[in-house]
């Protein structure tokens, strides 16, 4: 495309941009403040720096392309995390991660083996940071991501439900199991 036609296209794009888009702020204004957190989340999902960079790069391109579909006033954070997660799930690492998830994970029944979790044994200190990081890394992907969205991103159940495309009841039961699984993982690590 010649510079002149590109300029005319851009000019028409500007003229055709709906007013609410101008009022809601540009893509940069909404997406760049989330950059560090999105990268952190992507790295937790992929467990690899290069893959995390590729993933973040891909979702920024996708989100920018699809920005016209984003409805101003709705939750931009949930929207972009949803793109990140869907992109990851269709990647090679994502497909591998979901393939190893136990079948009974999505069941709402409390069917995890009982853990001897007396308050004393599960009391985690912030000084156990490395231990918790290792335990988080060992968790199956659905547990890891729901914990990150709830504890680190401090998303509401509603936001988590939108991001993961699951009902709120499933968000609650999955969170509960994820927390237990984390305690168990920490205990195992402590035992070693």
């Amino acid at each position: 495309m010649s510079p002149v036609s590109r300029m005319i296209v851009r000019w028409f794009t500007l003229v055709c941009v709906p007013e609410e888009r101008l009022l809601s702020g540009s893509f940069e204004e909404l997406a760049m403040p989330l950059f560090d957190r999105l990268y952190n989340f992507a790295h937790w999902l992929t467990q690899d720096r290069q893959e995390a960079e590729d993933l973040v790069q891909e979702i920024y391109v996708k989100a920018l392309k699809g920005f016209s579909l984003f409805r101003p006033g709705t939750n931009f954070r949930a929207w972009i995390y949803q793109i990140l997660r869907n992109t990851f799930l269709t990647s090679r690492t994502g497909l591998k991660s979901t393939a190893t998830v136990p079948l009974d994970m999505e069941s709402d029944q409390e069917n995890l083996p009982a853990v001897s979790d007396t308050p004393e044994s599960i009391l985690l200190q912030r000084s156990d940071r490395q231990l918790v990081q290792e335990a988080l890394g060992r968790l199956p992907l659905p547990y890891r991501e729901v914990l990150l969205l709830c504890e680190f991103e401090e998303m509401s159940y509603q936001e988590i439900s939108a991001t993961l495309a699951i009902p709120i009841g499933t968000v609650m039961s999955r969170l509960s199991r994820a927390r237990r699984a984390l305690r168990q993982a920490v205990q195992e690590l402590q035992g070693n």
Binding site: F35, D36, Y39, N40, H43, W44, R49, A52, E53, V56, P119, I122, L123, L124, Q125, R126, D128, R129, Q130, V132, Q133, L136, L147, L148, E151, F152, R179, L182, R183
Partner: peptide
């Protein structure tokens, strides 16, 4: 214990910097 865990996960989750 649950609050401690929440805080511990929050602190541990902040791990990777671009």
């Amino acid at each position: 214990a649950k609050v401690q865990q929440k805080l511990a996960v929050k602190a541990a989750a902040q791990r990777f910097v671009p």
